[in-house]
Protein backbone atom coordinates (compact mmCIF):
# COMPACT_ATOMS: atom_id res chain seq x y z
CA UNK A 1 0.00 0.00 0.00
CA UNK A 2 2.78 2.40 1.02
CA UNK A 3 4.29 1.92 -2.38
CA UNK A 4 1.19 3.24 -4.08
CA UNK A 5 0.99 6.20 -1.74
CA UNK A 6 4.52 7.28 -2.58
CA UNK A 7 3.61 6.87 -6.23
CA UNK A 8 0.69 9.25 -5.87
CA UNK A 9 2.96 11.75 -4.10
CA UNK A 10 5.36 11.49 -7.02
CA UNK A 11 2.51 12.01 -9.44
CA UNK A 12 1.35 15.04 -7.45
CA UNK A 13 4.83 16.58 -7.51
CA UNK A 14 5.05 15.75 -11.20
CA UNK A 15 1.83 17.54 -11.95
CA UNK A 16 2.76 20.51 -9.79
CA UNK A 17 6.07 20.84 -11.56
CA UNK A 18 4.38 20.59 -14.93
CA UNK A 19 1.99 23.40 -14.05
CA UNK A 20 4.74 25.58 -12.63
CA UNK A 21 6.90 25.28 -15.74
CA UNK A 22 3.86 25.76 -17.97
CA UNK A 23 3.08 28.96 -16.08
CA UNK A 24 6.65 30.18 -16.55
CA UNK A 25 6.59 29.35 -20.23
CA UNK A 26 3.36 31.23 -20.78
CA UNK A 27 4.68 34.02 -18.52
CA UNK A 28 7.69 34.60 -20.79
CA UNK A 29 5.46 35.02 -23.82
CA UNK A 30 3.20 37.20 -21.69
CA UNK A 31 6.06 39.51 -20.74
CA UNK A 32 6.97 39.93 -24.39
CA UNK A 33 3.40 40.89 -25.26
CA UNK A 34 3.20 43.13 -22.22
CA UNK A 35 6.36 45.03 -23.23
CA UNK A 36 4.98 45.50 -26.73
CA UNK A 37 1.65 46.76 -25.42
CA UNK A 38 3.26 49.13 -22.91
CA UNK A 39 5.63 50.48 -25.55
CA UNK A 40 2.73 51.00 -27.90
CA UNK A 41 0.66 52.78 -25.25
CA UNK A 42 3.42 55.11 -24.08
CA UNK A 43 4.44 55.83 -27.66
CA UNK A 44 0.84 56.37 -28.73
CA UNK A 45 0.87 60.21 -28.72
CA UNK A 46 3.73 60.13 -31.22
CA UNK A 47 2.15 57.33 -33.24
CA UNK A 48 -1.12 59.26 -33.40
CA UNK A 49 0.60 62.47 -34.46
CA UNK A 50 3.20 61.22 -36.95
CA UNK A 51 1.86 57.82 -37.99
CA UNK A 52 4.07 55.83 -40.35
CA UNK A 53 5.51 59.11 -41.61
CA UNK A 54 7.72 58.92 -38.50
CA UNK A 55 9.70 56.21 -40.27
CA UNK A 56 10.45 58.36 -43.28
CA UNK A 57 11.06 61.78 -41.79
CA UNK A 58 14.54 63.05 -40.98
CA UNK A 59 13.63 66.00 -38.79
CA UNK A 60 14.10 65.72 -35.06
CA UNK A 61 13.40 69.09 -33.54
CA UNK A 62 12.56 69.35 -29.85
CA UNK A 63 11.61 73.05 -30.12
CA UNK A 64 9.19 72.55 -32.97
CA UNK A 65 8.00 69.19 -31.61
CA UNK A 66 8.56 67.53 -34.97
CA UNK A 67 10.12 64.10 -34.79
CA UNK A 68 11.18 61.65 -37.45
CA UNK A 69 13.29 58.51 -37.05
CA UNK A 70 14.73 57.86 -40.50
CA UNK A 71 18.35 58.78 -39.62
CA UNK A 72 18.13 56.65 -36.48
CA UNK A 73 16.75 53.66 -38.34
CA UNK A 74 19.37 54.14 -41.04
CA UNK A 75 22.17 54.40 -38.50
CA UNK A 76 20.93 51.37 -36.58
CA UNK A 77 20.60 49.12 -39.62
CA UNK A 78 23.71 50.29 -41.45
CA UNK A 79 26.03 50.16 -38.43
CA UNK A 80 24.79 46.64 -37.66
CA UNK A 81 25.12 45.45 -41.26
CA UNK A 82 28.63 46.86 -41.62
CA UNK A 83 29.53 45.14 -38.36
CA UNK A 84 28.16 41.88 -39.74
CA UNK A 85 30.01 42.31 -43.01
CA UNK A 86 33.23 42.51 -41.01
CA UNK A 87 32.46 39.96 -38.30
CA UNK A 88 30.89 37.13 -40.33
CA UNK A 89 33.83 36.26 -42.59
CA UNK A 90 36.32 36.69 -39.76
CA UNK A 91 34.16 34.86 -37.22
CA UNK A 92 33.34 31.92 -39.46
CA UNK A 93 36.97 31.81 -40.56
CA UNK A 94 38.14 31.62 -36.96
CA UNK A 95 35.52 28.96 -36.22
CA UNK A 96 36.85 26.85 -39.11
CA UNK A 97 40.40 27.50 -37.96
CA UNK A 98 39.54 26.33 -34.45
CA UNK A 99 37.73 23.15 -35.50
CA UNK A 100 39.87 21.83 -38.34
CA UNK A 101 43.28 20.53 -37.44
CA UNK A 102 45.22 23.67 -38.34
CA UNK A 103 46.38 23.99 -34.77
CA UNK A 104 47.32 21.40 -32.18
CA UNK A 105 44.49 20.79 -29.71
CA UNK A 106 46.61 22.10 -26.81
CA UNK A 107 46.60 25.56 -28.40
CA UNK A 108 43.10 25.39 -29.88
CA UNK A 109 41.23 24.98 -26.61
CA UNK A 110 42.76 27.96 -24.76
CA UNK A 111 42.23 30.19 -27.80
CA UNK A 112 38.58 29.19 -28.01
CA UNK A 113 38.24 29.89 -24.29
CA UNK A 114 39.76 33.36 -24.55
CA UNK A 115 37.54 34.21 -27.50
CA UNK A 116 34.48 33.25 -25.51
CA UNK A 117 35.74 35.48 -22.70
CA UNK A 118 35.57 38.42 -25.13
CA UNK A 119 31.80 38.09 -24.89
CA UNK A 120 32.06 38.85 -21.18
CA UNK A 121 33.64 42.30 -21.63
CA UNK A 122 31.06 44.98 -20.71
CA UNK A 123 30.13 47.20 -23.64
CA UNK A 124 31.05 50.39 -21.76
CA UNK A 125 34.56 48.99 -21.38
CA UNK A 126 34.67 48.37 -25.13
CA UNK A 127 33.58 51.97 -25.60
CA UNK A 128 36.30 53.35 -23.32
CA UNK A 129 38.91 51.13 -24.91
CA UNK A 130 37.82 52.36 -28.33
CA UNK A 131 38.15 56.00 -27.34
CA UNK A 132 41.50 55.62 -25.60
CA UNK A 133 43.24 52.96 -27.69
CA UNK A 134 41.37 51.77 -30.74
CA UNK A 135 40.29 54.98 -32.46
CA UNK A 136 43.71 56.68 -32.25
CA UNK A 137 45.17 53.48 -33.69
CA UNK A 138 42.66 53.01 -36.50
CA UNK A 139 42.06 56.60 -37.52
CA UNK A 140 45.24 56.87 -39.68
CA UNK A 141 44.14 53.72 -41.52
CA UNK A 142 40.71 55.21 -42.23
CA UNK A 143 42.40 58.44 -43.34
CA UNK A 144 44.44 56.48 -45.82
CA UNK A 145 41.33 54.69 -47.09
CA UNK A 146 39.64 58.06 -47.49
CA UNK A 147 42.60 59.45 -49.44
CA UNK A 148 42.85 56.51 -51.78
CA UNK A 149 39.21 55.49 -52.13
CA UNK A 150 37.55 58.79 -51.29
CA UNK A 151 35.83 58.85 -54.70
CA UNK A 152 33.63 56.01 -53.46
CA UNK A 153 30.76 57.69 -51.54
CA UNK A 154 31.07 55.13 -48.72
CA UNK A 155 34.47 56.57 -47.85
CA UNK A 156 33.65 60.10 -49.00
CA UNK A 157 34.22 62.04 -45.78
CA UNK A 158 37.38 62.50 -43.75
CA UNK A 159 37.31 60.47 -40.54
CA UNK A 160 37.00 62.37 -37.27
CA UNK A 161 37.21 61.05 -33.73
CA UNK A 162 33.67 59.71 -33.85
CA UNK A 163 31.68 58.00 -36.55
CA UNK A 164 29.59 55.12 -37.74
CA UNK A 165 32.61 53.12 -38.90
CA UNK A 166 34.19 53.05 -35.42
CA UNK A 167 30.87 51.89 -34.01
CA UNK A 168 30.68 49.12 -36.59
CA UNK A 169 34.26 48.04 -35.97
CA UNK A 170 33.72 47.78 -32.22
CA UNK A 171 30.35 46.09 -32.76
CA UNK A 172 32.16 43.61 -35.02
CA UNK A 173 34.58 42.80 -32.21
CA UNK A 174 31.70 42.48 -29.75
CA UNK A 175 29.60 40.12 -31.86
CA UNK A 176 32.46 37.97 -33.15
CA UNK A 177 32.55 35.74 -30.06
CA UNK A 178 28.89 34.86 -30.60
CA UNK A 179 29.49 34.02 -34.24
CA UNK A 180 32.66 32.07 -33.46
CA UNK A 181 31.22 30.13 -30.53
CA UNK A 182 27.99 29.05 -32.23
CA UNK A 183 29.58 28.36 -35.62
CA UNK A 184 32.27 26.37 -33.90
CA UNK A 185 29.73 24.32 -31.96
CA UNK A 186 27.85 23.56 -35.11
CA UNK A 187 31.02 22.59 -36.98
CA UNK A 188 32.23 20.42 -34.11
CA UNK A 189 28.92 18.59 -33.94
CA UNK A 190 29.17 17.45 -37.57
CA UNK A 191 29.74 13.71 -37.77
CA UNK A 192 33.39 12.92 -38.60
CA UNK A 193 32.12 10.55 -41.32
CA UNK A 194 31.12 13.60 -43.33
CA UNK A 195 34.69 14.87 -43.47
CA UNK A 196 36.04 11.41 -44.19
CA UNK A 197 33.44 10.89 -46.91
CA UNK A 198 34.48 14.07 -48.68
CA UNK A 199 38.19 13.36 -48.37
CA UNK A 200 37.68 9.80 -49.58
CA UNK A 201 36.22 11.21 -52.80
CA UNK A 202 39.44 13.05 -53.44
CA UNK A 203 38.38 16.40 -52.04
CA UNK A 204 41.16 18.61 -50.74
CA UNK A 205 40.95 19.96 -47.23
CA UNK A 206 39.56 23.29 -48.48
CA UNK A 207 37.05 21.66 -50.79
CA UNK A 208 35.90 19.62 -47.82
CA UNK A 209 35.55 22.71 -45.64
CA UNK A 210 33.93 25.00 -48.20
CA UNK A 211 31.69 22.57 -50.04
CA UNK A 212 30.72 20.02 -47.42
CA UNK A 213 31.35 21.13 -43.85
CA UNK A 214 30.23 24.76 -44.05
CA UNK A 215 27.06 23.98 -46.03
CA UNK A 216 26.28 21.17 -43.60
CA UNK A 217 26.54 23.49 -40.62
CA UNK A 218 24.78 26.37 -42.34
CA UNK A 219 21.77 26.37 -40.04
CA UNK A 220 23.98 26.87 -37.02
CA UNK A 221 26.03 29.56 -38.75
CA UNK A 222 22.95 31.44 -39.94
CA UNK A 223 21.55 31.21 -36.43
CA UNK A 224 24.78 32.62 -35.06
CA UNK A 225 24.75 35.47 -37.57
CA UNK A 226 21.15 36.36 -36.76
CA UNK A 227 21.80 36.36 -33.03
CA UNK A 228 24.81 38.57 -33.62
CA UNK A 229 22.73 40.89 -35.80
CA UNK A 230 20.14 41.16 -33.04
CA UNK A 231 22.84 42.13 -30.60
CA UNK A 232 24.41 44.67 -32.96
CA UNK A 233 21.06 46.31 -33.68
CA UNK A 234 20.26 46.81 -30.03
CA UNK A 235 23.72 47.68 -28.71
CA UNK A 236 23.42 51.01 -26.92
CA UNK A 237 26.53 51.97 -25.02
CA UNK A 238 29.06 51.59 -27.80
CA UNK A 239 26.88 53.49 -30.25
CA UNK A 240 26.20 56.26 -27.73
CA UNK A 241 29.92 56.66 -27.04
CA UNK A 242 31.31 56.35 -30.55
CA UNK A 243 28.80 57.17 -33.25
CA UNK A 244 28.82 60.93 -32.74
CA UNK A 245 25.12 61.55 -32.12
CA UNK A 246 24.56 63.43 -35.33
CA UNK A 247 21.02 63.13 -36.51
CA UNK A 248 21.71 62.94 -40.19
CA UNK A 249 22.08 60.41 -42.97
CA UNK A 250 25.42 60.46 -44.70
CA UNK A 251 26.50 58.24 -47.54
CA UNK A 252 29.93 58.08 -45.93
CA UNK A 253 30.57 55.38 -43.34
CA UNK A 254 33.19 57.64 -41.76
CA UNK A 255 30.66 60.36 -40.93
CA UNK A 256 29.00 60.58 -37.51
CA UNK A 257 25.45 59.30 -37.19
CA UNK A 258 22.89 58.13 -34.70
CA UNK A 259 21.17 54.86 -33.83
CA UNK A 260 17.80 54.33 -32.20
CA UNK A 261 19.44 52.95 -29.08
CA UNK A 262 22.02 55.75 -28.79
CA UNK A 263 19.34 58.38 -29.35
CA UNK A 264 17.21 56.95 -26.55
CA UNK A 265 20.22 56.74 -24.26
CA UNK A 266 21.19 60.34 -25.01
CA UNK A 267 17.80 62.00 -24.76
CA UNK A 268 15.41 59.94 -22.70
CA UNK A 269 16.57 61.33 -19.34
CA UNK A 270 15.44 64.86 -20.14
CA UNK A 271 12.62 64.09 -22.55
CA UNK A 272 9.02 64.93 -21.82
CA UNK A 273 5.74 64.94 -23.69
CA UNK A 274 5.83 64.29 -27.39
CA UNK A 275 9.61 63.91 -27.45
CA UNK A 276 9.35 61.16 -24.86
CA UNK A 277 6.61 59.45 -26.81
CA UNK A 278 8.67 59.74 -29.99
CA UNK A 279 11.66 58.11 -28.31
CA UNK A 280 9.40 55.28 -27.16
CA UNK A 281 8.02 55.00 -30.69
CA UNK A 282 11.58 54.65 -31.93
CA UNK A 283 12.15 52.00 -29.26
CA UNK A 284 9.08 50.14 -30.48
CA UNK A 285 10.47 50.20 -34.01
CA UNK A 286 13.81 48.85 -32.77
CA UNK A 287 12.04 46.06 -30.97
CA UNK A 288 10.02 45.17 -34.04
CA UNK A 289 13.18 45.13 -36.18
CA UNK A 290 14.98 42.77 -33.79
CA UNK A 291 11.86 40.62 -33.47
CA UNK A 292 11.68 40.38 -37.25
CA UNK A 293 15.36 39.42 -37.40
CA UNK A 294 14.84 36.69 -34.83
CA UNK A 295 11.73 35.32 -36.51
CA UNK A 296 13.58 35.33 -39.81
CA UNK A 297 16.46 33.49 -38.14
CA UNK A 298 14.09 30.81 -36.86
CA UNK A 299 12.53 30.43 -40.30
CA UNK A 300 15.89 30.15 -42.03
CA UNK A 301 17.18 27.64 -39.50
CA UNK A 302 14.10 25.41 -39.73
CA UNK A 303 14.25 25.63 -43.52
CA UNK A 304 17.86 24.41 -43.57
CA UNK A 305 17.17 21.74 -41.01
CA UNK A 306 14.51 20.29 -43.29
CA UNK A 307 17.13 19.88 -45.97
CA UNK A 308 19.56 18.33 -43.52
CA UNK A 309 17.23 15.70 -42.14
Amino acid sequence: MAKFESLSVARWIDRGFYRLTAAFAVGIAGILVWILVTLFQTAYPAIAKFGLGFLFSSRWSVQEEIFGALPLIYGTVVSALVALAIAVPIGVGIAVFLTEDFLPAQIRTPIAFVIELLAAVPSVVYGLWAIVVFIPFVKPVLELVHQVLGWIPLFGSAPTNVGLMYTSLILAIMISPTIIAISRDSLVSLPPQLRQGALALGATRWETILKVLLPASLSGIVGAVMLALGRALGETMVAAMLIGSKNAISASLFAPGQTIASMIANQFGEATGLQRASLLYAGLILMLITLAVNVLAELIISRFQQVEH
Binding site: P191, Q193, L194, Q196, G197, A200, V212, A216
Partner: peptide, 10 residues
Protein backbone atom coordinates in the same frame (compact mmCIF):
# COMPACT_ATOMS: atom_id res chain seq x y z
CA UNK B 1 36.03 4.22 -50.14
CA UNK B 2 32.64 3.26 -48.76
CA UNK B 3 32.25 3.48 -45.03
CA UNK B 4 30.70 1.37 -42.33
CA UNK B 5 27.97 3.87 -41.56
CA UNK B 6 26.28 5.33 -44.64
CA UNK B 7 27.50 8.93 -44.81
CA UNK B 8 25.71 10.79 -47.58
CA UNK B 9 26.26 14.54 -47.56
CA UNK B 10 23.38 16.70 -46.36
Amino acid sequence: MVFQKPNPFP
